[in-house]
């Protein structure tokens, strides 16, 4: 698996997409810092970009990489290598290279602008960590979609739809249903619904750092326990890991039964 991972990773790192992706974050980071000259403020703006963009790029690249490397995958399948190793290797290679692009692209401008002297460094690092976690989750989702649909158009369509649903539509329905049922106790529902969406989970992970003062403003034992102790952080991290593990397990299951 490590060998496949290495080949996928270096293959991708040499491709132009990882440069374009890194360059995008580099320019974005630079622009944010240049316009504000304030690391804390730039981190807050980045939050929005990262929790919506890394999933999009992750799911699209996941689907695209699977379709584009089909022939190569077949070449590998005829070699004495375990199937699981091929797909996990490719998956990890892609996720790592995207995460690296993210870290390098954003890291350089922030370091140049004095990240290490800023109190926002931990916020920034948890932002990068969350971005990487989202990348791993959404590349896995993309791989699942591509494994299930031979048709590229349908695969890409479903990938975009998945992203749109989890970034916007889910939260919209979530918000509207809370407003409709506002006369009922909602704290468990509010936390529960957030747990089922990896984007909400990672947003909450960052809110715990940036907006803890506001989160503690709500009266409710469940909220207080969740946000006031380490429970929130532990829960969110645990569930996000599940969001990586479950799709990866399906990759293993699905790829083991697929004909090429």
């Amino acid at each position: 698996m490590i060998r496949i991972l290495k080949y996928s990773f270096f293959d991708l790192m040499r491709g132009r997409w990882s440069y374009i992706y890194a360059a995008f974050y580099f320019i974005l980071g630079y622009a944010l810092l240049f316009l504000n000259n304030d690391v804390s403020k730039a981190v807050i703006t980045l939050l929005n970009v990262i929790i919506s963009l890394t999933p999009l790029i992750g799911v699209i690249f996941g689907v695209m990489y699977y379709y584009n490397s089909r022939d190569f995958t077949e070449l590998l399948l005829a070699q004495p290598i375990k199937r699981t190793d091929i797909f996990l290797g490719q998956y990890l290679g892609l996720s790592l290279s995207l995460s690296l692009s993210l870290a390098a692209g954003l890291g350089i401008p922030f370091i140049v602008y004095g990240l290490f002297q800023s109190p926002a460094i931990f916020d920034f690092l948890s932002l990068l960590f969350t971005g990487a976690l989202l990348t791993f989750i959404f590349v896995a989702l993309g791989y699942n979609i591509a494994l299930s649909f031979e048709d590229k158009i349908r695969g890409f369509g479903l990938a975009i739809l998945t992203w749109l649903f989890l970034t916007i539509i889910y939260d919209g329905l979530f918000l509207i249903s809370m407003m409709i049922f506002r006369d009922y106790p909602l704290d468990k529902f509010a936390l529960g619904a957030a747990m089922f969406n990896p984007i909400d989970l990672s947003r909450i992970l960052i809110l715990l750092k940036l907006d803890i003062s506001a989160l503690l403003g709500y009266t409710g034992a469940v909220f207080e326990k969740f946000f006031g102790t380490n429970l929130g952080m532990t829960c969110a991290l645990g569930l996000l890991s599940l969001w990586v593990i479950l799709p990866v397990m399906r990759i293993i299951y699905k790829s083991g039964r697929k004909d090429f």
Binding site: I44, N48, T167, G172, L175, R182, A190, Y218, G220
Partner: peptide, 19 residues
């Protein structure tokens, strides 16, 4: 919205809320 339905605070900084 948060004044009306305090639990919605969990959606703070969501893309939908920004919209």
């Amino acid at each position: 919205v948060v004044n009306q339905t305090p639990e919605t605070i969990v959606l703070l900084r969501s893309l939908f809320v920004d919209l």
